[in-house]
């Protein structure tokens, strides 16, 4: 009996979402009176043993470069085999794009109940019940997992990573990697930016900004705050901003600590993608904008007057000029 945490990586680095998953797995193992281990497929540049500080005792690695591209079918077979070999009865994934591709397949292979989008540690006082987001962030459901092996896929930004002391033993997995049926023709990674789903602060712009030439101040504010930039659907549809910045029901769903919405009215479809943000600040010149009803803080005012002053205030706070 143990908890096995899937460690996702790209460009040679372990994803932040996986540090959250490791901390979650270690905390759950503590509840269950067992140990947490990690599994990583492929190679990274950083020291895997150091991940022990998140509470895992051992990390199983299949260090083949062919595995650096995630293939859901290949990954699922290896992870399921490793879960059986290590006697894991709970598996933890991050509910990021990698987790969404792999966890359902692993669940079928292991006949394991799956909760995708968990937001808290399981309640094990009576069974194994996990709270997850449903209705696009408008409610939660408590789901009971009734199978011997259980899989929890944790929403990014739902559980803060806790670093302590400790080193993990790194062990090589002896499982055949197999060949992928899906051939990767090309892959592009946006490097040097904060990935939207992992960002703790997101600064987002809407139609109120009038045109792509006005995004300089959004980018400046975001940079000062260490934030990612995002946009509403009309902005992406008008090609003012790239589609991968579009947050909302048809775009990406995010849950940062702080979401700053500038010139976005807050249609229900937009809210569905951002309503899990811990704090929402809205800047809009229309006092009737529906977004104010979902916000914690707001300014009724013109973005072109307000945002430059926000930038000055952040600079002052951070001691820059």
């Amino acid at each position: 009996m143990s908890v096995l945490v899937f460690i996702d990586h790209s460009e040679g680095h372990v994803k932040k979402a996986s540090l959250e998953a490791l901390s979650y797995g270690a905390a759950l193992a503590g509840q269950l009176g067992t140990t947490a281990e990690g599994i990583i497929l492929g190679t990274v540049t950083e020291d895997l043993a150091a991940l022990g500080k998140y509470g895992v005792k051992k990390i199983h690695q299949l260090a083949q470069e062919s595995l650096n591209h995630l293939d859901a079918q290949v990954y699922a077979r290896i992870i399921a085999e490793a879960a059986v070999a290590t006697g894991a009865n709970v598996l933890i994934f991050s509910n990021n794009l990698s987790g969404k591709a792999v966890a359902p397949r692993v669940a079928v292979r292991l006949k394991a109940g799956l909760v995708s989008g968990a937001v808290a540690l399981p309640n094990i006082s009576n069974g194994f019940v996990v709270k997850k987001n449903v209705f696009s962030g408008k409610a939660f459901a408590n789901i009971s997992l009734n199978s011997p092996i259980k899989i929890v896929s944790l929403n990014p930004n739902a559980f803060a990573p806790k670093a302590g002391e400790g080193q993990a033993a790194v062990a090589a997995l002896s499982i055949q990697a197999g060949t992928a049926k899906v051939k990767v023709v090309s892959a592009t990674q946006a490097t040097g930016q904060v990935p939207l789903t992992e960002a703790e602060i997101v600064v987002s712009g809407g139609r109120g900004l009038k045109g792509p030439e006005n995004w300089g101040m959004i980018e400046e504010l975001a940079k000062l705050l260490g934030a990612a930039t995002a946009c509403s659907r009309p902005v992406a549809d008008a090609h003012w901003r790239p589609h991968n910045e579009h947050v909302g029901q048809t775009g990406i769903a995010i849950a940062p600590n702080l979401y700053i919405a500038i010139g976005i009215s807050g249609a229900i479809q937009h809210l569905a993608g951002v309503n899990r943000s811990k704090v929402i600040a809205v800047i809009n010149k229309d006092p009737e904008a529906p977004f104010f009803k979902a916000a914690d803080y707001g300014i009724v005012g013109d973005a072109f007057e307000v945002v430059p002053k926000l930038i000055q205030a952040v600079k002052k706070l951070k001691g820059i000029a």
Partner: peptide, 28 residues
Amino acid sequence: LTNVVSFELPPAKAGVKLVPADNPEELI
């Protein structure tokens, strides 16, 4: 393999705290 035990609604927001437009520094 799973079943829904119960649903919950998120706690209601306390309501928006508005900052005057001539003092955006206060928002920060």
